[in-house]
Simulated scan of single mutants.
Amino acid sequence: MASGKQYAAINSMLDQINSCLDHLEEKNDHLHARLQELLESNRQTRLEFQQQLGETPGDASL
């Protein structure tokens, strides 16, 4: 059987693991938000590029 000290040590380790997981979740959320920003920026840039191509005369076939 585990003693009170062993339970306290296990609880402490679980608290540390929980803290690490919380930190990783925060980082993951931040990275996900940043990725969404980058994807939207890329989408906007691509649309602008396509619009510019559509506004130029049909010289692409030359």
Rank of each mutant, 00 (worst) to 15 (best):
A9P: 07
Q36N: 06
L31F: 14
Q16K: 11
Q50S: 05
S41R: 04
H23L: 02
Q52C: 02
L24Y: 05
H23N: 07
L39Y: 05
Q36M: 08
Q50E: 11
N28D: 06
I10W: 12
P57Q: 09
G54M: 03
G4M: 05
M13V: 03
L35R: 01
L38N: 06
R43S: 00
D15G: 05
Q16F: 01
Q6I: 11
M1R: 09
Q36F: 01
S61I: 14
D29H: 14
L47K: 13
G4D: 15
L47G: 12
F49T: 14
Q52N: 04
T45V: 03
S19G: 12
T45R: 02
Y7W: 09
N11K: 06
S41L: 06
N11P: 05
E40F: 03
H32Y: 12
Q44P: 01
Q50N: 08
F49C: 13
S41A: 10
Q52L: 10
L24R: 11
E40Y: 09
G58D: 12
S61M: 10
A2M: 07
E26Q: 06
Q16S: 13
E26M: 03
R46T: 06
H30C: 02
L14D: 07
D59Q: 12
Y7A: 10
R43E: 03
S19F: 02
S41D: 14
N42Y: 07
D15V: 01
E37P: 00
D22W: 00
A9D: 04
M13K: 05
L31N: 12
E25H: 04
I17V: 15
L24F: 08
S3C: 13
N42R: 13
E26W: 01
H30Y: 12
L38P: 08
M1L: 15
M1P: 14
A2I: 06
F49N: 14
A33Q: 08
N28V: 08
M13P: 00
A60W: 06
N11Y: 11
S19K: 07
Q6W: 04
Q44M: 00
E26Y: 02
K5G: 07
Q16W: 00
L21M: 15
R34C: 11
D22N: 02
E37I: 04
Y7F: 07
E55S: 09
F49L: 14
R34S: 01
M13I: 09
L39I: 10
H30V: 10
L38R: 04
S41C: 03
A9I: 01
D15Q: 04
N42T: 10
R46Y: 02
E37K: 15
L47M: 11
Y7D: 08
L62M: 14
I17G: 12
E48C: 08
H23W: 00
H32L: 13
M13D: 07
L39M: 06
L31C: 12
G58Q: 15
R46K: 06
G58A: 14
S19D: 14
L47F: 12
T45W: 00
R34W: 03
T56E: 09
K27G: 04
H30P: 07
L38E: 04
H32S: 10
